Amino acid sequence: MASNLETLVTVFGGSGFLGRNVVRALCKRDYRIRVAVRRPELAGFLQPSGKVGQVHTVQANLRYPASVEAAMRDSEVAINLVGILTEGGAQSFDAVQAKGAETVAKAAAAAGARMVHVSAIGADPQSPSHYARAKAAGEQAVLAAVPSATIFRPSVMFGPEDQFTNRFAALARISPVLPLIGGGTKMQPAYVGDVATAIADAVDGKAKQGATYELGGPEVLTMREIIETILAITERKRTLIPLPFSLARFQANFLQFAPGALKLTPDQVTLLERDNVVSEAAKAAGLTLEGLGITPDSLEAIAPQYLWRFRSAGQFQR
């Protein structure tokens, strides 16, 4: 059996939140990794994830097919992790998540490479959310070009560098009240390390080809329960004020231009109107983390390891 060091895996979007975890997981399994990102000079932090020379960074932009084809040269597996939560400039949902996914898939097909594509739970061509429609279009384009591709749809992901738990913890530090949008909306938060393990398993050949997996954590929690968990971990008492979707959407028209943790777009409000959980069909077919033999970690088990920095006394007891 050939060793993994002879297998070159190209990871598109490898410097992002999920990407850095995927690169780490692949390094542990001794793959050679080419990280294709828009700004390679900002991805140097990935080098220590592996042995000397194991991780190599190249420039590629999904809007320029020639750069994607160059990044795929001699590669046996393509992993597409590129996604955006908000649109800006030329980085639109359609350009990145639909057309971009198609560009990677076509380059993988031309190179005769296998493909793993990361989408999102809620991807649906009929969704009222532009984000979710673009994710669905990306899935369709990937399977049209590479019918054997494995698609992963994670629920909302948490981990040390996430834009989710850190955001609420940061807001709780500066505000005595927190707006609660979609307090009853159900989510199934997945630990980013578990999602990265699933992707590495697919590269190993353990996932079904042409299948769509839905990846969620061990618990289904409402948005209110998630925020209450974050407040308990960061030892802060805050008043949660339920905000109706209509009012939230009105506010998002202004907050979409806000910086950092305050940013909220109308499309994100639309997404919050639907539950974000693993479907019964995926569970029945074994197309889940558990189906891959992965026991998912819970928010309560992992989040205290990195959210302690939002406590008033840090890691120390008051």
Rank of each mutant, 00 (worst) to 15 (best):
T7W: 00
F17E: 12
R24K: 15
A25N: 08
L26P: 06
D30S: 13
I33W: 06
V35E: 11
A36K: 06
V37N: 10
P40T: 05
F45N: 07
F45D: 14
P48Y: 02
S49A: 14
V52L: 07
Q54S: 05
V55W: 07
H56C: 11
Y64I: 11
Y64S: 10
P65N: 15
A66K: 04
M72R: 06
S75C: 15
A78D: 09
I79F: 12
L81C: 12
E87C: 09
D94S: 10
A95H: 02
G100Q: 05
V104Q: 03
A105H: 00
K106S: 05
A107V: 00
A108W: 03
A111N: 07
A111F: 00
G112F: 08
V116N: 08
H117G: 04
S119I: 03
A123V: 00
S127N: 06
R133P: 03
A134H: 09
K135G: 06
A145E: 15
V146W: 08
S148E: 15
T150C: 15
I151H: 10
P160H: 04
N166R: 05
F168Q: 01
A169L: 05
I174K: 06
L180A: 06
K186V: 04
Y191G: 02
V195C: 11
A198S: 12
I199D: 12
I199Q: 10
A207M: 10
Q209L: 12
A211Q: 13
Y213G: 10
L215Q: 06
L215I: 10
G216S: 10
P218W: 08
M223C: 04
M223H: 14
T229I: 02
T229K: 06
T229M: 04
I233T: 01
E235K: 02
T239N: 02
P242A: 00
L243I: 11
S246N: 01
L247V: 13
L247A: 14
A248W: 04
F250P: 01
L255Y: 08
Q256E: 15
F257N: 15
P259F: 04
T265Q: 09
P266T: 05
Q268F: 00
E273H: 01
R274M: 05
D275F: 02
E280H: 06
E280N: 09
A281G: 04
A281N: 07
G286P: 01
G293F: 10
D297A: 12
D297F: 03
D297C: 05
L307C: 07
L307R: 06
R311W: 09
R311G: 09
A313L: 14
F316S: 12
